[in-house]
Nucleic acid binder design. Structure first.
Lengths: 205, 205
DNA sequence: GAGCATTGTGGCAGTGACTGCCAACTAGAC
DNA sequence: GTCTAGTTGGCAGTCACTGCCACAATGCTC
């Protein structure tokens, strides 16, 4: 067993905190509950709540850490000599498909989160902030992988643009949950595919 | 005179607050000064400081409001029937050129801000949050302008992608200021041009 | 399985960011 | 001049977050 007891505990309390935050945010709104409330609901002291969550809002964002970890791992496994844009696009497709499962617990939590993002500006602010941090990591990784010169804009543009398309898809996903009339059954992978198509259409007229 | 005295006062204190925030952030770091400090330096009470700045960090971000206002105005003046991507790209070029002036006061403040963004994570978090808010506005405007269906991903993708390229350029700009050895004389418009070139290269292999 | 090193946890006190409320003021309209 | 609406300042209060320290649990080693 490579995972020690401490590791498992750690992951467990992390999940507890995240679940508690999502539940309370949904029930009372972000402004309607305190960090102490979340900590208590997760069965943990206020102090350790902050050790895990760093910020009240970020507690709810822990669900998507897995996704971004998966993407980062995928970036490390790219083939730097072949065209990167299509590789990154199919990597995103793969990652999104694997995590969007509406039947798994984390899949449902992910939906909760993105529903909340539409109505909770402070939560959204936190989300874009962590997103930005992660992007910096992706960019550094990609730059190292391709051996690009530090002044070469390519890695940055690549990361910024591909994540921009993903963001467009995620925003539509959020919207679709509150408004199923306009969209049909909202399926994240499909929405991402449509965003990629729109992207292609606009770059090749 | 269409601008009333109140308007002028308002703009003045806004600039005072912004200038004070930038100065203190540069001198003592964001964590090294309180919102009261900034308010006092701007000659205003703590209460009205928050009325203008909303957030301690956002005080410094008021400099770039002009730029985003200019871009938004430009979006409203686009020709919806012609290809939008090149229009948006030249709009950004235009807007950046007009505001990057290193000799004007606001131009120097803009540089200060972007230098700070590299070293101050909380400031950067606030910056990406306001950026996100503005993008939502751009997207809504563009959607209305083109008369796209609400389920059409095109406006969103368009805004996300074009701003993504700008962000890549701005990040390199920040970096260039602290490291003039790697880059030559950092010129924002040039950097943006290079980012656009990289973008083209990666979409048309 | 006892003892030691490492890591995780809780409690507490303190700082400071932000808000609601109200009272005083000031520009603008007539 | 006066009335109205927008603007400001001063509290007082809440709550997010942090540093510090004592204590507990885990993992390692013999």
């Amino acid at each position: 067993m490579t995972t020690t007891l401490r590791d498992r505990r750690r992951r467990q309390t992390e999940q507890d905190i995240c679940a508690a935050a999502l539940a309370l945010f949904e029930q009372h709104g972000v402004a309607g509950c305190t960090s102490d409330d979340i900590a208590a609901a997760a069965g943990v002291s206020s102090r350790t709540f902050y050790r895990y969550a760093v910020t009240k809002e970020r507690a709810a964002l822990l669900v998507q850490a897995d996704i971004e970890d998966a993407f980062e791992a995928g970036v490390a496994a790219l083939r730097p000599t072949e065209p990167l844009l299509p590789q990154l696009e199919s990597l995103w497709t793969e990652v999104l498909r694997r995590h969007e499962n509406g039947r798994s617990a984390s899949g449902r939590q992910l939906r909760s989160l993105y529903r909340l993002l539409r109505t909770e500006p402070t939560l959204r602010a936190a989300a874009v902030a962590v997103d930005d941090e992660r992007r910096a990591g992706f960019t550094a990784l990609l730059a190292e992988l391709t051996g690009a010169a530090p002044s070469d804009p390519t890695p940055r543009v690549l990361v910024e643009v591909t994540t921009a398309v993903v963001r467009a898809a995620l925003d539509r996903w959020s919207e679709a949950m509150d408004d199923p009339a306009t969209y049909g059954e909202p399926d994240l992978v499909t929405l991402y595919g449509e965003a990629v198509t729109a992207f292609r259409a606009m770059t090749q007229p």
